[in-house]
Amino acid sequence: MLPSEAMDEQPQNQSGGVLLRASDLCFAYSSGAKSQSFELIVDELQVHAGEVLVLCGASGSGKSTLLSILAGTQRPDSGRVDLLTDGVTRDLYGCGRQQWKASRHDFGLVYQDVRESLNDRRRVIDSVLDPLLVHDLPKSNIGACVNVWQRIVELVRWGGESERQKKQRAIALDVLRRVGLQAEQADRFPKNLSGGQRQRAAIARALVTQPRLVFLDEPTSALDVSVQASVVSLLRELHQENPVRGYVFVTHDLALARQLADRIAVLDRGRLAEIGPADEVLRSPTSNAGREMVAIARRELDALG
């Protein structure tokens, strides 16, 4: 049973419909590394429901920045990013702070650094519970004032768990079990987990609100190849489980992209060099950057037979 009560009541997007649309994005920053100003310009980019879009590129190509802009955490200099849910279009950077906050449970984010992706001073389960607490999920059907009263009761009964807390805890544990972490591991501190387990916990935190879009910023680049394989398998299973959820995945490893991607976007120095179905991009890349990346990946992997 997946704890999706909140989501089940809403009509789901049709598979293939546009979920996120970015248009006329422009973002300039001076990257401290080379004191060069850098410009990211993307005219049009769409993420469809149920697809895995992989952003590929060398370091410094702006792929992580583009991901943050799409995910609504980095305001672009100009342009808009629209989230299309249930027939409502919401400009992530044009709507107010309240609207932005309310839309956050539709986004799940997983970051690269295994050591820093979870708060080392808190148990894994607490970190995973956070999004539920912030968004007050699952939505309760009692009125707001009752809710306040409930809060007071929770405060007074401090130490024990209310029904609601138990419910949230059950949801979090369920998601953690889904990504392969048992209840006993959920109660540990991150330092007592291996790198792969920590990254699974980070994925669980991104999934706990049942988001429509999940953004992953090189989630496996700090992991061993063997652990990466199991995380990638997990991501594929998760993708098959919920066919309407969109994924945006940043990596510089084309072979890894191949395992997950429906579409691949190649970024080159802040521009979208090419975008298309994964097979096509890998078979016959049209841009220079794409050709170079494919050639290198092919040469490396050929040696493995």
């Binding site: 986004f107 992706s117 991104a206 609100t209």
Partner: peptide, 17 residues
Amino acid sequence: QTRFVAASQAFGASWWY
């Protein structure tokens, strides 16, 4: 600057939270 703070801001947690 850590990623877990970025993550918690990304899911919409308030500054105080």
